[in-house]
Write a protein that binds this DNA or RNA. Structure first.
Lengths: 80, 80
DNA sequence: GTCAAATTCCCACTATTGTGGGAAGACGAA
DNA sequence: TTCGTCTTCCCACAATAGTGGGAATTTGAC
């Protein structure tokens, strides 16, 4: 699993846990609704500032979010 | 201080601590020598995969690196 | 099944990330 | 000073991050 896909899974999980729609998250983080979708689908990867925006909107430590991505990649690397 | 500048300062500090030149770090992380320079100068910000590559080359947790960036931004926000 | 809300997909486009190579400048040691 | 190493700056360029809007599809509640 590449970083974009792992980030997408982590993002979707965190967004749902926060009870937000993609559009609401987009408003909070100042990102397009359709771009949030692309990220969750793992079709694009975020830049640093996008990571920071999303983490803030989701009320996470940015570093925590990144480490979740790393675990997600390891998880799948070790046969799910 | 914006995210790119903060990342640059953190990156330079970590690289020097590791005793690497920009070129050596570039080789480890599979990034151009000149691009490492741009990042350290805060003239560009990294994408997620670039963050992961650099953290690995510097033997840091990626999330740790990101949180150092956040503290760097806060530090300066509060008058150094 | 129906309906509204949520998400994905489509278009085109702009801005920025990252490559590639080389020249110029800065730095430190002898 | 002189030499070698490290870093910055310059060029052009390719790839992808992110915008903007709208149509098609999926999803879940009723």
């Amino acid at each position: 699993m590449d970083a974009a896909a792992a980030f997408g899974r982590v993002l979707r999980r965190a967004r749902r846990r926060a009870g937000l729609t993609q559009e609401q998250l987009g408003l909070e983080a100042d990102l397009r609704r359709t771009y949030v979708s692309l990220l969750e689908l793992g079709q694009q990867q975020p830049s640093l500032t996008t990571i920071l925006k999303l983490a803030t909107a989701l009320q996470h430590q940015p570093g925590e979010l990144v480490d979740l991505v790393v675990s997600e990649m390891e998880k799948v690397a070790n046969g799910n």
